[in-house]
Nucleic acid binder design. Structure first.
Length: 478
RNA sequence: GGUCCCAUCGUCUAGCGGUUAGGACACCGGCCUCUCAAGCCGGUAGCACGGGUUCGAUUCCCGUUGGGACCGCCA
């Protein structure tokens, strides 16, 4: 069997978004699965809209995701010679012709057709023109006016178009640059592409391209049109759907493995399996398992997957991943404590950004107390509790979680109160919030000094008991 | 408007003529518990509709409806 060759051919007119990344991924997986070759080609024939920044963005995003190409970069802008040779052939064989219609003329005719509710296809104005005036022109492909064109899509099955529905498309612009439908054919032939895997928004382009293959005497590759990825509004993903640039997800604290895993499961499945390592994907990926219907991007599931990957990391690994996101003060913590931080936030932080947000309180000098939390748990009766707690915590022989917990258990037991009563107040004192990892673990990380300091400064935020009738205002304000 | 594609829980999907229609996210309960997570247990929720074909259709065919993509000297 011949070696399989796939390619990803983005045009650098925007950042790489989820749809493009998924297309690149499937091309990569398919070629790797079959020990084939995966080529990266930049389709930059539209010089006015292509930029180096976008090329860099695309390369960076693919690299981040671990989608490696075996050959390339190729730039269409550097292959003009090849396109022109082929156009000359079509021209000399009468399979293409020069069209002198100006953009204005074309637009005017389009408008008229629109008003008459007629088809807006090119009307073949210059199709049979014999003269060659000294005027700017484009080259159009002479589409057969009868018959039909079919191809078998690896995902959708046989698809047929009637030739008369297709018009004579421009293949060379007035500035001599080739248009997409032409350059893509030439390059795919030249690079020996065996499988064209792309978004199904290209299905309508495929018959035109197949016609060009035929006119040139080349046999077309196999096509596989991937279903679109839609936003929550069921339309094609675009800027308005939020952080569509793949690279944004790195900044938002996502792991590339999670992103790849999520993308792979969008439009493809393997039984009930949800988690796939890259190698697993290469081993199991097959175009026959790709679904035909569009998928809606679900950020919730991405976040869940990311959490799954975060939880699989070792404590050391997680700290390394999180370091760029953490407060610089975290660096001052002893290594052992930092690993403990990783351990306690692993089940809680779903992204590296959340990891930072949730653990920040440990590293800051002062506690940012949530007023509502203080209002609710800093009640006058906890003052005595805190005094006793401070006294006993100072006497703890070894600052270990177990020892600390014993102190709390003893107080709770002696006073006949619930653990929650004291725990929530202390939690607010230590973290400023009502939600956090286990208290004793936090205290272990903070150390005895900081723990006592935070509980002591919380004392000032606890109101004194108001004078009650029975106590006659003996305590508190005088 | 024309052409083409698509149609199983809210979402991602399994199913490939006979299943109590399975899993995952989300959601809702319960257990655990110092709060929140994590974990474990359980639950709600789906074959768009109408015709065929067949002993039997979620599954095959046709139509309807709905959704989407494309219709550039963009890719």
């Amino acid at each position: 069997m011949e070696k399989i060759v796939t390619r990803f051919a983005p045009s650098p007119t925007g950042t790489l978004h989820l749809g493009g990344a998924r297309t690149a991924l499937f091309n990569f997986l398919f070629s790797r699965h079959h020990q084939g070759k995966f080529i990266l080609r930049i389709e930059d024939t539209d010089r006015t809209r292509s930029t180096d920044e976008y090329i860099q963005d695309i390369l960076e995003a693919l690299t981040w995701l671990g989608i490696q190409w075996d050959e390339g970069l190729y730039y269409q802008s550097q292959r003009m010679e090849l396109y022109h040779q082929n156009v000359e052939r079509l021209l000399s064989e009468g399979k293409a012709y020069r069209c002198y219609c100006t953009t204005e003329e074309l637009e005017a005719r389009r408008q008229i057709a629109l008003e008459r509710k007629e088809n807006t296809r090119y009307d073949g104005h210059c199709r049979d023109r014999q003269d060659r005036p000294d005027l700017p022109y484009v080259v159009r492909f002479r589409t057969p006016q009868s018959g039909s064109i079919s191809f078998t899509d690896l995902i959708h099955g046989p698809i047929t178009f009637v030739n008369s529905e297709l018009d004579d498309l421009v293949i060379i612009r007035a500035d001599k640059t080739p248009t997409y439908n032409f350059s893509v054919v030439i390059d795919d032939v030249d690079m020996g592409i065996t499988h064209v895997i792309r978004g199904d928004d290209h299905i309508n382009n495929t018959p035109r391209q197949v016609l060009i293959y035929q006119a040139l005497g080349f046999s077309p590759p196999l096509f596989a049109h991937l279903p679109m990825i839609h936003g929550a509004d069921r339309t094609k993903l675009s800027k308005r759907h939020g952080a569509t640039a793949v690279i944004e997800y790195r900044k938002d604290g996502y792991l590339p493995q999670a992103m790849v895993n999520y993308l792979a499961r969008l439009g493809w499945g393997f039984g009930d399996q949800e988690i796939f390592s890259p190698d697993d994907l290469i081993g199991k990926f097959d175009l026959k398992d790709v679904s035909k219907s569009a998928a809606i991007f679900n950020p919730e599931k991405l976040v869940w997957l990311n959490h799954q990957y975060l939880m699989k990391e070792s404590n050391e690994g997680l700290i390394e991943l999180a370091r760029p996101f953490l407060d610089p003060a975290a660096g001052k913590l002893p290594g052992e404590s930092l690993l403990k931080v990783a351990e306690i936030f692993k089940p809680r932080a779903r992204t590296l950004v959340e990891f930072n947000e949730q653990s920040r309180f440990l590293f800051l000098d002062t506690v940012e107390t949530d007023p509502e939390a203080a209002q609710k748990f800093f009640t006058p009766d906890v003052k005595n509790l805190f005094y006793e707690l401070i006294r006993k915590l100072k006497e703890v022989p070894a600052w270990k979680e177990k020892e600390i917990e014993d102190v709390f258990r003893n107080i709770v037991q002696a006073r006949g109160i619930k653990m929650a009563k004291i725990a929530q107040a202390v939690r607010v004192a230590l973290t400023g919030k009502t939600v956090s990892p286990g208290l004793f673990e936090i205290m272990g990380i903070l150390g005895q000094g900081k723990t006592l300091q935070r509980i002591e400064s919380a004392l000032d935020k606890i109101p004194s008991a108001p004078p009650s009738p029975s106590e006659g205002g003996a305590l508190g304000r005088g």
